[in-house]
Computed example of a mutant assay.
Amino acid sequence: MTATRTAPVTEANTPQRKRGAALEDAIREAAYAELTEVGYTAFSVEGVAARARTGKASIYRRWPTKQDLVTDALCTGLPTPAQCGMPFEPDDSVTTADALRTVARTIARVITSPAGDAVRAIKCEAAADPELAQLIDDRFQAPRRAALLGLLQRGVERGEVRPDAVTALVADVIPAVLTHRVILQREPLGEADITAIIEQVFIPLIEAR
């Protein structure tokens, strides 16, 4: 009887273990994926370690707490303002209403993406964690607020918006309505929905009288 020969284990057929910066990048990516897929409550270092194909000890040496890891993963994974199309600078032929529709489409696209899933996953936690809440606002909410304030001021100069409507409170209305529909009502955001939100809610709120 001929003995079965086992192929030798070589570098060619053995996955290479990540180290240093490559390992840290893999852990951050794994943590971001874990957060978007299972949420903050079910997020676990064990799950991240399995995704990154490393041990928990390697993670804890770099990120002592779950919060440290989540915060770092969010800083790396959340889109930058430029990637969100912010700021938006329309040419003179674009009305305030049309400019607002463009911004609303951008916001809707982001909040229905994995980035939106990640932000929603840690919203409740952020309510009790000022540092985490500030991170989310700085990276995710402040750029769109600034873009909307810029469009509102532009609208004032064009005679399309009331001067007293250029406030952070008013600028937060569009994101709040869009987020409400996605998170609480769990409804899709199509072009007709965005148009209705702009024309039925936002334009009456800001238009010059």
Rank of each mutant, 00 (worst) to 15 (best):
Q67E: 15
L78G: 04
R105V: 11
A49G: 01
E29N: 13
T14P: 03
T167D: 10
R209Q: 11
D172L: 04
M1H: 14
I111F: 02
D72P: 04
T6I: 15
P114F: 05
I183D: 11
R51L: 14
A97Y: 03
R158L: 08
R158E: 12
G77Y: 07
T96G: 03
T102E: 10
T167L: 11
R51K: 15
L132V: 06
L152Q: 06
L205D: 08
A192T: 11
L74H: 00
P90L: 02
A52M: 07
Q83R: 15
A50F: 06
D164V: 05
L23C: 02
Y32S: 01
F140C: 10
Y40C: 01
P175C: 12
A165R: 05
C124W: 13
V70M: 02
A104G: 05
C75I: 04
A115T: 02
A196W: 12
I59T: 00
I197H: 01
A30E: 03
I59Q: 01
K123M: 04
A52G: 02
T65V: 13
A133Q: 10
R139E: 07
A7K: 15
Q83M: 08
R53E: 13
D92F: 06
R61H: 08
P8N: 14
N13H: 07
T102K: 08
S113V: 05
Q200D: 14
T106Y: 11
L149A: 06
Y40S: 07
V9P: 12
E157G: 15
V110L: 13
T112H: 09
R181C: 13
L178W: 01
F43Q: 01
A126H: 02
L152I: 06
D91P: 07
A165Q: 02
T95V: 04
Q153T: 11
V201W: 01
I136H: 02
L149D: 04
K123Y: 09
K18I: 12
D138G: 09
A192C: 09
A165V: 07
A82Y: 10
V94Y: 03
D164N: 09
E125N: 09
T54N: 02
T95H: 09
Q134L: 10
L189I: 03
V103Y: 05
P79M: 04
L205R: 07
T179Y: 08
T95F: 09
